[in-house]
Amino acid sequence: MKRIEVDGLPPEPLAAAGLFHQNWLDPIERALGEGQDVLVTLEAADHMHEEWRKAAAAMLARKHAPRRVNLVAGSGPSLDATADYLAQAPGVTGQYFRAAT
């Protein structure tokens, strides 16, 4: 599973969603188009970011099925544990997870 680390998103949700789509959508879709499953990691953010992140995960999964793609926010051991779990969970795709920090 290819891991793509998204960083540098602004704290304002609309601006963060715009920057995500502008700068990160192409590399994610390129990896999916090459037949790779993708795990997108993001910095933790407050609840106001959940809707755009959930929507991005779901739309990418639908568009690129049967490839798997999930978004995970967080850092440290919790993020790594979630990534390890998802790499071994072939039925999980199109989800947004918040790893405990």
Rank of each mutant, 00 (worst) to 15 (best):
G91L: 06
G91R: 00
A89R: 05
A83Y: 07
Q36N: 14
A61N: 03
G76S: 02
H49L: 04
E5D: 08
P11A: 10
E34D: 13
P77G: 15
D26H: 10
L79E: 06
P11I: 09
Y85C: 01
M59T: 02
T82N: 00
A89D: 01
L19Y: 00
L14R: 10
D84C: 12
A31G: 04
R62C: 15
R30P: 09
F20Q: 02
G18F: 13
V92S: 05
Y96I: 11
A99Q: 02
G94N: 01
D80I: 06
Y85A: 01
L39H: 06
R67K: 12
P66G: 02
H21A: 10
A73W: 06
D26I: 12
A56R: 06
I4W: 06
G35H: 07
T82G: 06
A83H: 13
D7H: 14
L25H: 00
F97W: 11
A57W: 06
L32S: 04
A61C: 13
T41E: 03
D46P: 09
V69F: 12
D80W: 15
G35A: 11
G35C: 07
E50F: 08
P90G: 08
A65G: 13
L14G: 12
L86H: 08
A15I: 11
G91H: 02
A81H: 06
A81R: 09
Q88S: 04
A57E: 04
V69M: 11
D26T: 08
L79H: 07
A81D: 12
M1F: 01
S78M: 15
P11L: 09
A17D: 09
S75P: 02
L71M: 05
E34Q: 07
P13F: 00
Q95A: 09
L14M: 10
I28G: 04
A81T: 14
I4N: 00
V92G: 05
E51Y: 09
Q22S: 06
G18E: 03
A57F: 07
A83M: 12
V40E: 10
A56P: 03
W24S: 00
Q36W: 15
A89M: 08
R62F: 13
A61G: 14
G74V: 09
L60P: 15
V6L: 07
V92H: 10
E50D: 13
G74L: 04
V72G: 11
M59Q: 07
H21Q: 14
E51W: 15
H64R: 13
I4G: 01
Q88E: 01
L42C: 04
T41M: 03
F20R: 01
A73G: 03
A58I: 08
L79M: 02
P77D: 14
